[in-house]
Design a protein around this nucleic acid. Structure first.
Lengths: 345, 345
DNA sequence: CTGAAAGCGCTTACAG
DNA sequence: CTGAAAGCGCTTACAG
């Protein structure tokens, strides 16, 4: 099947190619009657303007890029990224922008792809995930002048806008809730230590524990896999003064932690309380269902996409956006600590 | 920053634009020495050819499309799609093809996007997921002449190649394993009934149960969510002659089923054996870890991508590929049925 | 082996 | 309000 071009539409409508272009793009230059006739003909013969030709003349690819630099394993198992992508998509497809996705091994590969995309003019802008402390990607994107919105923060992202959520506040709320239940030995299994949000949560955790007078707060790092969540949990539960509550930095590790507790003969929540970050359907799948800290991730992705489109189309650099703070949803995995534990620590 | 064009490279190399093009694309027409000099200059000034200009003249976008028509909820929670995408990516990025991803609500939206992509020449070909019985997408893609590889089968996909796995054989193996353990009342919680692989597994299940003389084989359908998996399990476990083993069509429902069993006071595997399809890290996360039927999904995606690139570049339509058959990995969730149950049914 | 030129299908000033 | 034309940055026959 031969693809119709703008010339085909012009010929059938008896107008110039320019007129068709104006009609399609909603620009002045054609009468309303002509516009309607052109639109009808375009629809009839199934014409869509070539994205390549459009990009070449208009200099806009109508595509944005998203790079994921995580191993396939953790990518698949964490609902976070797919939910984020769904939200991004909803925003993009409403404006018929395409999403170009790439999975890479590490940050340097990611930077190489940004450079290539920029050279190829393949995307009009990018969404940057997994913001790191002193992130190397930020200066590169600034130098290239490739519009970008950083997902994560708060942080100094220079000229790049960011969309972020107040994780420190959410963490405070969580620890205070556990404290109110009577917990005095609270541990946290954190995520990848070089991710900014891990650093932010770790600092908040340390501060709130100090404020509440919890001397024995413990933080360990992990890579978000179930294996590391299980290993960290075994270590915590085998220690002399084992914690009565554990906060995990993702849902997967929390579920792994629940299994380890069961395996070690500890009842949840009678002997151990468990809190998952990144609330997701996974948390409601297990028994008992997990108390979790969460927020609307598709909406988060949508907000980031909207900021990016604004940066691309509006010209004016958006200033960034503080998204909703995650909130705690208590379920069956948290309760008071075992009797006799309540005042120790 | 101004993006370098082929003219910049040509000027600095003291050759024509044509020569630069030949050098970059590994075509004859330039001497080896000149080619090396051109390549060095291109690398030095960070030149990547504009994908739009390339697509416009060469008629190849160097991008393939993938559409997911599932609600955000199930997309996020099932590791399958992300693993598939990872595998596709690995194959594509090795040849510097881009992946254009779109999430849509239903099949008619999906078909509309195919038509638009075709008109826009945005992608050189597409990967078709979730093959259905009498799939409406197949004739549309054939009519458009858009290269496509169907993920799933075996089925009559006309001129489209497909990559598939023998699910019937894997289901046989699973039922025979449960039969050998002594199970005589085996139930199956199937996936979306209009998906081809659900139909194939359902038929295989019915046939193997007949062959083994298991009269009371039960099949229910679901939408792959934990909620439906839990509901189906409650129904099964509340029935007068409850099954002693249940096979679930995905990992998420199997985990939900495990929780329901625990909630209803049944021990797994002492009172109930559970098998998950789509083995994934989730299956090893719970306690007991789930016996599961699985295979290498990233490899599956990679094979599909390779077939598609062959269809796009080779010209000759690939004939399709039978991928590895899924195999059963016994873990802690399966065992003999309760004493006294072994000969009933 | 190399250079000059046409052409891909749009968009957008520029004249009428 | 409309038409003719240049130009985006490549690729690829076509001459030399």
């Amino acid at each position: 099947m031969k693809r119709p071009t703008i010339a085909d539409v012009a010929r059938r409508a008896g107008v110039s190619k320019g007129a068709v272009s104006y009609a399609l793009n909603g620009q002045p230059g054609v009468s309303e009657a002509t516009r309607q006739r052109i639109l009808a003909i375009a629809a009839e013969i199934g014409f869509s303007p070539s994205s390549a030709a459009r990009a070449l003349s208009g200099a806009t690819a109508r595509a944005i890029g998203l790079i994921l630099a995580r191993p396939a394993q953790t990518l698949g198992i964490e609902p976070f990224f797919m939910e984020l992508i769904s939200g991004v998509e909803a925003e993009l497809s409403a404006r018929s922008y395409a999403l170009t996705l790439q999975v890479v091994a590490d940050t340097s590969a990611e930077i190489a792809v940004y450079r290539r995309w920029w050279g190829e003019r393949r995307v009009d802008g990018v969404l940057v995930c997994d913001l790191r402390v002193a992130d190397q990607r930020v200066p590169v994107l600034e130098e290239l002048g490739l519009p970008a919105v950083v997902i994560g923060g708060p942080a100094d992202t220079g000229r790049l806008a960011s969309v972020w959520s107040n994780d420190a506040a959410a963490l405070d709320e969580t620890v205070e809730y556990l404290y109110a239940l009577g917990h005095r030995r609270i541990a946290r299994v954190g995520g990848l230590p070089d991710l900014l949000h891990t650093a932010i949560r770790t600092r908040a955790f340390t501060e709130v524990c100090q404020r509440l007078g919890l001397a024995e707060s413990i933080v360990t790092s992990s890579d978000y896999t179930g294996e590391e969540g299980a290993r960290a949990t075994r270590r915590l539960l085998s220690s002399r003064l084992r914690p009565t509550a554990v906060i995990y930095d993702n849902d997967v590790m929390a579920i792994a932690g629940l299994s380890v507790a069961q395996e070690m003969g500890l009842a949840v929540p009678a002997d151990l309380s468990i809190v998952a970050w990144d609330d997701s359907p996974l948390c409601r799948l297990v028994h008992p269902p997990l108390t979790a800290v969460g927020r609307d991730i598709p909406a988060y992705g949508g907000h980031a996409a909207r900021q990016l489109l604004q940066a691309i189309e509006g010209g004016a650099a958006p200033t960034g956006l503080q998204d909703e703070t995650a909130h705690l949803t208590p379920r069956g995995s948290t309760g008071p600590p075992p009797a006799g534990e309540q005042r120790s620590g």
